[in-house]
Amino acid sequence: MSDIVIISGSPSELSRSEKLLQYIGSTMRKEHYSVTFISIKDIPAEDLVQGNYESPVLQQITQHIQEASGVIVGSPVYKAAYSGVLKALFDLLPQDVLYDTYVLPIMTGGSPSHMLAMDYALKPLVSTMKGLPLKGLYYIDSQLDKHQENPIIDEEILDRTKKQLFYFLEKIGLKKSISNATIR
C-alpha cells in the first residue's frame, strides 16, 4: 500500500506531463512518502481497447488506488480534454474507485487557452468516480523542459506547484510540508 498513487495519462513516448509527474513523485519519495506510479503505457493496450475488466493489471491498479491516501491524476490536453487512453483506463475501474479520496488534477497544454479543460473535463471525471478534486495545476509547454531533472522551469508555476502539493499533503492527512530544499 502506498500513500500516494500517481496516474499518468500520456500515451506519448517522450512526454512532458509524464516527466513532470515523475518529478513530483520523486520529490514526494524524498519526503518519505511511498508513491506508486502508474503510467497508462504500462497497461496492456489490448486490456484497454477490449475493455477487459478481468485484467490482472487493472485489478492491481484498482487496489492501489483504493488503498492510497491521495491520488494525483495527470494528462496532457488533447482536443480540449484529457487524453482518450486516460479515459479508457477510468472506464474500466469501479465507479467509486476514488471514494472519499482527495485527487490533485494536473494537466499540460500547448497554450493557456485550454486551461479550463481541467475544470470542464478532468474534474467532473474525478467527481463521478466519487473523488474529491482539489484546485489542480495547469502547465503550459513553455513552462516545462522535459530534459531537465526538474522540468518546471517557470518560477511562478513552481511556486504554485509547491503550494498545491502542500495543500494536497495537508488534505490527505500526511501533514508534512515540502521543503524548499527538495523542490529546486
Partner: peptide, 11 residues
C-alpha cells in the same frame, strides 16, 4: 484578461 478562460464560451 487572459486566454486562460478561452473555454468558458465552449462550455
Amino acid at each position: 484578461g487572459t486566454a486562460r478562460h478561452y473555454l468558458v464560451l465552449e462550455q
